[in-house]
Nucleic acid binder design. Structure first.
Length: 987
DNA sequence: ACAGAAGCTTA
DNA sequence: GTAAGCTTCTGTT
């Protein structure tokens, strides 16, 4: 960087200038430990280090204007560590290796302090691969070369080597200046010999070896005698004391390595130069907005007084503690307060965003401070050791755990072992059901030396149910179902998968442990397949060797605990704690119970249906073969397309994106409408074979051998919008639209003496739309219980609701649904089979009648573009990292999705709230109804015959009032509920 | 044995 | 036009 060639800056640093360099990272730790714990009142966000930092900077800046102090900064910067990995780790892998993770309540403060720095209009400087100390050393050199002075705001002895006539240090906590005399007084050597002194003494905190037996006093004395380290090492034989002499000769290499480690790098290729640090006039409003957001009342008042600002008039800043992880596309999560920063010109260096620095700060602490070593985990095979570990968990108050089983299906899984982690790197596996000799016919016997399951579980139960110990798991619902079958409950708990889901819904591809470990810890986990095999080579976890299982299971617990340390504080920091605590965490046991209960499915009905479908399909098949003259595979779209559009030459053929003939139902329907016989038969055949293969044939295979019921799996963190999903089997897509399909629902039955009750929200997403977009006509229509589609049609086409043609209403209905899906002329045209121009005209007309909806759509798009996410009424965030894509179709897709997400997501939040409230409400009412299924806007219960009458009003009441008391919708919610012997009739 | 495409089911 | 999961076919490993 040749800034000497021609001065690019009007404020080039010159003689008489004074550069202040704050050791930000050092200060964070000192302030944290020096100050009592402090939490933001509104949400418990820990802020003690932030307050200490703000007080310190404020004092420095105020003193800067106070000429009495004599030292007036003209340039000012705050320097941070970028990550724990630096060039020193290449030199010496153990460097700082024994640093433990920062305390949990310090972690969110790393990011906040960077925000604080910017609120003070000060530059934040950091650089990958270098410590803050190296940057400080480099800037001190630059200042000295420019003839300026520098003051380092720190008391770290590692920085004392920089002290010179032009450079001094200042300890803000003790209000003490450190110059050359102070260094000599404290260490007995002048600053330039500090490097040699540290090389001899080492540093246990940073894991710098030094020479054993040499402390600061001895080192100073030796340096006094020999002058410098090299001379000392070359003439070590002259040392009189035998032990000292031997130690120095023996450890000369260690001393030289230590010297390399402690020598600060004064030529870091920095991006910013001191000229960039010219002290700007402070921006009182921006600073106050930050202080108010932190709820620092005293400091806010002081700053307001000093700057002559009325604090009451300033809105607290929206502090995103960090930005979205934006590997793809531009950085999004930039709140207004931050965006203003850019124009304030506070930190020219920060235009690359603070994401990496923040992630790094987090990783630096909790995650990579102690490396993940899968060989370090313990295997517990005796009761006393297990008791010791459990005791340890009681002491720490937090334990991560994971179960290892024989199956992915928690209702079938048998426990094989479990693992615990009490702190990062400290994990143990307790094998219980490992077997050996799987190859022989008997399936092998148990491995010797494992704890008896009963004894181990009795101990574990004590821990799992202890109110004083927080249990942390990844996808806790699985473990909850398994453990429940062994008689264990788990509470209280946290779930790292759900925390990630709340933090990064839409931004991350998945919330599985493997991807979370990679993302947050930079660690590649052992794959399950590597341990237990895949496909044909799958052996089941019970047949995995115990040492291998220990590495795998121990890692699971260790990683889970570390993830929790990294992720949990971020919830409060981003204002998402209540989403997690109210919409996610409490739903886990509710869903676990629903899954465990399962639903009765009548085998006979399915079997009979299957036969009927087979007959029907076979008959159609013959007709098809007759029409085309050969026996092709009708299930092959490729062969079908070849026949239809190739050989038979039917019109209207279109190609899919892979260049194949499209044989979609829509297209075949159109052909059938033109009078072609074959397409109709293909559509009919497909319907029958679909029903048979997906439902009547597959469902009986899911009937549990012991319970005789079907237990679906509800996924809490699978969708972007907050909806649940159901799988194995999916009970959220059981047919309902056709009469044939509905027969399958008759196989879902209540037990003898019970009824199935289905309760579903009427038009919930349209009601949410009416509320959030605040549309008077729609709100009124819902308040009056009117037909919403008819009202829409009436408004649009000027047709009275009375005697309205069904086609008119149908079109209005399609438009209403279109709005929810983020309408496009293309989509509406497809849905209604009308030209795109006509669809466009409808949409135009609709927006003329409901301008509020157009405004709502535009506002949502603008918001999503600005922040990269949208929020539901209950505060759930759904990220759209690609919404600013330069590709118009990608962008349009993200816009539609974000419009839909607010509505679908809010509806999902509402039914989640209802589900969480439901069981206590039923219990309070003395009712025994059991919730079995959720299908997005519908809940299905099994209710004793004699309780049906009393239960339905309770269910409806809970569902209709689910938004309360958190939110009150300006539109009433309506629920329809019915009881019957099977799902078809109840629906 | 696995992955992607096509197609179909639901809200 | 939104959000999911499952089955079959097809081609690749």
């Amino acid at each position: 960087m040749d800034r000497d060639a021609s001065p690019r800056y009007p404020f080039a640093m010159k003689k008489g200038d004074h550069l202040f360099l704050v050791d930000g990272s050092g200060y964070i730790f000192r302030a944290y430990h020096a100050l009592p714990p402090l939490n933001r009142k509104s949400d418990g966000l820990p802020t003690n280090a932030v307050l200490g930092f703000c007080n310190m900077v404020w004092k420095l800046m105020r003193d800067a204007r106070d000429t009495d102090v004599g030292v007036t900064p003209t340039h000012f910067a705050v320097i941070f560590d970028y990550s724990s990995k630096t060039f020193r780790n290449d030199l010496y892998p153990e460097y700082k290796a024994n640093r433990s993770a920062p305390p949990e309540d310090l972690i969110p403060q790393f990011g906040l302090i960077r925000h604080a720095t910017r609120a003070f209009s000060l530059p934040c400087v950091e650089m990958e691969g270098f410590e803050a100390d190296d940057l400080i050393a480099t800037y001190c050199r630059m200042a000295e070369e420019a003839g300026a002075d520098a003051t380092i705001i720190s008391s770290d002895k590692d920085l004392m080597q920089l002290v010179s006539p032009a450079v001094s240090m200042y300890d803000p906590m003790k209000d003490r200046q450190i110059g050359i005399p102070e260094v000599i007084e404290k260490w007995g050597v002048p600053p330039e010999k500090m490097i040699d002194l540290q090389a001899l003494t080492g540093d246990s905190i940073d894991n710098i070896p030094g020479v054993p037996g040499i402390g600061p006093k001895t080192a100073a004395q030796l340096l006094e005698q020999f002058g410098d380290l090299d001379t000392l090492l070359s003439r070590a034989e002259e040392i009189k004391q035998q032990k000292r002499r031997e130690s120095i000769i023996e450890n000369a290499d260690k001393a030289r390595l230590s010297r390399e480690l402690v020598t600060l790098k004064r030529d870091v290729p920095v991006k910013e130069v001191p000229d960039d640090f010219v002290l700007e006039p402070s921006n009182g409003a921006k600073l106050l907005a930050f202080l108010k957001a932190m709820e620092f009342t005293t400091l806010t008042r002081r700053v307001a007084e000093a700057t002559g600002t009325d604090a009451a008039e300033i809105e607290p800043a929206d502090i995103p503690v960090e930005r979205a992880d934006s590997a793809h596309g531009p950085d999004m999560e930039t709140a207004p307060a931050e965006a203003a920063d850019e124009t304030a010109g506070a930190a020219p260096a920060m235009d690359e965003g603070d994401t990496p620095s923040l992630l790094a700060a987090l990783r630096a602490g909790a995650a990579t401070a102690e490396k993940i070593d899968v060989d370090a985990y313990h295997t517990i095979t005796d009761l006393q050791t297990l008791k010791d570990w459990i005791e340890e968990a009681f002491e720490t108050g937090v334990v991560a755990f994971d179960t290892e089983t024989t199956s992915l299906d928690p209702m079938q899984a048998e426990l094989v072992g479990f693992s615990l982690a009490t702190r990062p790197g400290r994990a143990a596996y307790v094998p219980l059901g490992h077997r050996q000799g799987a190859g022989d016919l008997l399936g092998g016997g148990p491995v010797e030396g494992q704890l008896p399951v009963r004894e181990a579980l009795a101990e574990l139960k004590r821990l799992m149910e202890a109110p004083s110990v927080l249990k942390v798991a990844q996808n806790l619902k699985y473990d909850l179902v398994v453990m429940s079958r062994y008689g264990l409950d788990i509470a209280p708990y946290d779930d790292t998968m759900l925390i990630s889901y709340v933090l990064d819904g839409g931004a991350a591809r998945g919330h599985g442990m493997d991807s979370l470990a990679e993302k947050w810890l930079g660690h590649k986990t052992i794959q399950f397949g590597e341990v237990a095999g895949t496909g044909k080579s799958f052996i089941g976890f019970e047949n995995v060797a115990i040492d291998k299982a220990t590495r795998y299971a121990g890692e699971d617990a260790d990683v889970t605990l570390r993830l929790w340390q990294v992720l949990k504080p971020r919830l409060a920091a981003k204002g998402l704690a209540s989403v997690y605590e109210r919409l996610e965490r409490p739903l886990v046991p509710v869903l676990a119970r629903m899954e465990q209960r399962g639903i009765s499915v009548d085998r006979q009905i399915l079997s009979r249906l299957s036969g009927e479908l087979a007959q029907g399909a076979a008959a159609i098949e013959e007709e098809i073969y007759g029409l085309i003259g050969e026996r092709i595979n009708i299930g092959s779209p490729r062969q079908l397309g070849e026949i239809l559009f190739g050989r038979m030459g039917l019109p209207g053929g279109s190609k899919t994106k892979t260049g194949q003939w499209s044989t979609s139902a829509q297209l075949l329907e159109d052909l059938a409408a033109e009078g072609h016989e074959l397409p109709r038969k293909i559509v009919d055949w497909r319907q029958l074979t679909k029903l048979k293969s997906t439902y009547t044939d597959a469902l009986p295979g899911y009937i549990h051998p012991e319970t005789g019921r079907v237990h679906t799996n509800f996924a809490l963190a699978a969708t972007t919008t907050g909806r649940l999903s159901s799988s194995d089997p999916n009970l959220q897509n059981i047919p309902v639209r056709t009469a044939e399909g509905r027969k399958i629902r008759t196989a879902f039955v209540a037990d003898k003496g019970f009824k199935l009750v289905s309760a579903d929200y009427s038009q919930i997403e349209l009601r949410v739309l009416a509320h959030v977009a605040d549309i008077a006509q729609l709100k009124q229509a819902f308040a009056e219980g009117a037909d919403i589609h008819a009202i829409t049609a009436s408004e649009m086409f000027g047709v009275p609701v009375e005697g309205m043609p069904s086609e008119v209403r149908r079109r209005a209905k399609a438009i209403n649904f279109g709005i929810i899906y983020g309408i496009s002329a293309f989509g509406l045209a497809n849905q209604l089979s009308i030209p795109r121009e006509e669809a466009g005209a409808y949409i135009k007309k609709y927006f003329e009648r409901f301008p509020g909806i157009r405004d709502y759509i535009e506002a949502t798009k603008t918001y999503a573009r600005e922040f990269g996410y949208v929020e539901t009424v209950f505060g759930r965030r759904i990220h759209y990292p690609e919404i600013r894509s330069p590709n118009p179709s990608v962008r349009a897709f993200n816009e539609r999705a974000s419009i839909n997400a607010r509505l679908q997501g809010t509806a999902a939040d509402i039914i989640r709230r209802a589900m969480i409230r439901m069981e206590p409400a039923l219990t309070e009412a003395g009712l025994s109804a059991r919730m079995l299924l959720q299908v997005h806007d519908e809940l299905i219960f099994e209710v004793a015959d004699d309780e049906v009458g009393a239960t339905i009003p309770v269910i409806c009441d809970v569902m209709e009032n689910a938004p309360m008391p958190a939110r009150s919708l300006s539109v009433p919610l309506r629920v329809d509920a019915r009881a019957a012997l099977n799902w078809d009739e109840a629906h």
